[in-house]
Design a binder for these strands. Structure first.
Lengths: 225, 225, 225, 225
DNA sequence: GATGAATGAGGATTCATTCAT
DNA sequence: AATGAATGAATCCTCATTCAT
């Protein structure tokens, strides 16, 4: 849809190299600041060649965006299709999955974070809408089902809840980087492991957010007896 | 602290004009892409004059950031000082206050959003940390008190909860722009009124998020009899 | 070492044009005041193109510096390799060679003069040291040999003597420009012939300095009848 | 001659402060790169005030130049007026005096060095000529006398010899900075003592150059018996 | 007589994109 | 089909000088 045929004709390995390098640049810089020159130079690619693969910067960005979203959803699919589980177990596993994804694909993860917050480019327009919708759709489907099953409250629209859940995923991310003073981007740049935390710390935070999602801030009623 | 004395010597009106124009630019573009030339041109200001007011782009940014945060906290102060209220009433009012702030000061609001998500500049470093902390502190204070009073759960750290609450504020923002397909940035640029929604719509969304914050997603137990 | 491959790929003629124009600018202005814009404009070159040839101003300068030194040493080589001559004949010929070089390559000569006196730039650091060493090395080698042969005094370090000799070369330059009121730089700028003096005048001065180098200021003992 | 009356009306102390700061700037940078803004800022002086003291940058420079030369010649006067001494003793003392001057007035010394090598400014024109003449005149007078006395050779013009002697003074300077890897300018900037060498090292170098001036490079005839 | 705000041209450098080979 | 040289507008920032107060 976005890439030129010349790009698709490339050996898959070269395609991957190009995607990876470009994604890395857009993970480190937002759209306008990201530099095609840098990408092309890192790849040892001729400028002219690049423009035969992608019409321009915007097209490249949209291509990468779709690629990353698809990739991400693919990884999530198995989990979300699981129908049996309790929704909140599912939430926790979803958090863990997200963390796992961040650890395994830090660059892609950083890129998606940037995409989700990209609001400032004239060329891209209101891209957030598109991304958020794409990411929310599977979630909304599940939410609707759980509402029908009575597991989840029915007095709030599933779209609102979906936005809520996704934001909380970002919150988890922000919280860990804040508390453990981690500069993700710096780590990406230095090709260092991004999130080197003891697993139980991560789990504890994830559980915390899941609990808040589940029961809110209210202090639980003390059980008597 | 950041601005030169020459700036402070300016007539307040001129100061405001400069602040407004600069904030607008940084609301429309993130730090690196924002253009001093644009700011200066819009103001009808000589390049050289600007640099007599602020040493450089970074200093200007930090000045505006502090200005905006102070301004925002000031507006919030009255609300948060109120000691009597129930925390959740307070949350709802806080949401309403935030919306009101966004409506009244859309440019400042957009700028603060950008600041809170600015992660990409080498010059600014990990500025998010600083901003988030500043915005979170009053909130954490209240949370701790409410925890002591038993209104709020004590099994999750107040910092985590604070991150949660602030994210939900962003969620409200994102939700409205998503559902009502509002492109804040485009409106800012076109100097059009930013968020023209019926008040009850806004209130409904705010209430929704406050409820989620309060009780979570779980379907409430049906009261018997 | 300093130039980009793109520069080396250029037709030799174009390379030379670029070198000449750049050298001229650095012959007329010292490092910091020299203007890339001027160079580029004189060449009818696009700004961006220049930066594909040289990474930045400093790199360009260092490239030109090496180029000029190599060029100069190359021209001197034949003379200095000559082993048979008496050292002072050699000095005189060296002076003549220097003058000849200045006449033939006035721009390069002016540039080298500037390089040798460049002390004011933070970027370049103490570049004088490097240049002086480069220019002194062949001279020191010869001096050492002549000292061993007993032609030259052995009570003063060859390094000191080398500095002395090179300074006297500059003195010759300064003397001629002073006495004949020649403004080399103005001539370079106006593309006029730089040093239009009768050859015997030049020779007389060169001989004078060589004599001073050889025997010093002291009045020679009158030979008795 | 150059300064405005307003400057001369200033308290001497203020005049000195202005001179010192300006000289320092011109000691660290050559004419075109030197910044009036820097000078004015260091002095806490209003821009407008400065331009009431000196018509412009060029006038300031010429004023400082004259000031420094006068100052320098004044310090040298006592020594050079001494008629009795042997010329070469006088040379050595002159070298020592120069070193002493450099140590006592490093900033002035650095400035004079820059002035003597300033060839690159359109505004200043061929300023070298003027300076050199000024510095050479007393020397030429002495040389002529010594020639008449038969102490100094009469087969070379006194002007040429004067240039020679002055250059050797520079050589002493260059030699020490080269051998002891001293970056004068950096020291000036850091307000550190400029030339911290054991006095005998300095004396040795000075003697070396004086010897070369006196007898040249030629190995002295071995005395028989 | 002193001030300091305003100016705008000029500095080095980076960028996405085009096009002839 | 691939290349990579060329472009020129845009970036931030500094400068000497003027002039109204």
């Amino acid at each position: 849809m976005f890439a030129e045929q010349t790009f698709l004709n490339l050996p898959v390995k070269r395609q991957q190299a190009i995607i990876n390098t470009a994604v890395e640049e857009f993970a480190l810089k937002e759209y306008e600041s990201a530099s095609l020159s840098t990408i092309v130079q890192k790849l040892g690619l001729a400028k002219g060649s690049f423009y035969r693969y992608f019409r321009n910067k915007e097209i490249l960005y949209r291509y990468l965006m779709n690629y990353a979203i698809e990739f991400r959803l693919e990884k999530e699919k198995d989990l979300l299709q699981e129908p049996v589980k309790d929704f909140f177990d599912l939430l926790i596993e979803n958090f863990k999955a997200k963390i796992k994804f961040d650890l395994e694909y830090p660059v892609l993860s950083g890129f998606l974070y940037n995409v989700a917050h990209e609001k400032n480019s004239d060329e891209l327009g209101n891209i957030q809408e598109y991304v958020t919708m794409k990411m929310m759709n599977p979630l909304i489907r599940i939410l609707k089902e759980k509402i029908r099953q009575g597991q989840i409250r029915d007095d709030i629209s599933p779209e609102l809840m979906a936005v809520h859940v996704l934001q909380v995923q970002h919150a988890l991310y922000d919280y860990l980087s804040l508390i453990y003073r981690i500069d993700f981007r710096k780590n990406i740049k230095k090709k260092k492991p991004v999130l080197s935390l003891p697993e139980d710390e991560i789990l504890k935070a994830a559980t915390g957010f899941a609990l808040l999602l589940k029961n809110g801030l209210t202090a639980p009623k003390k059980k008597r007896g």
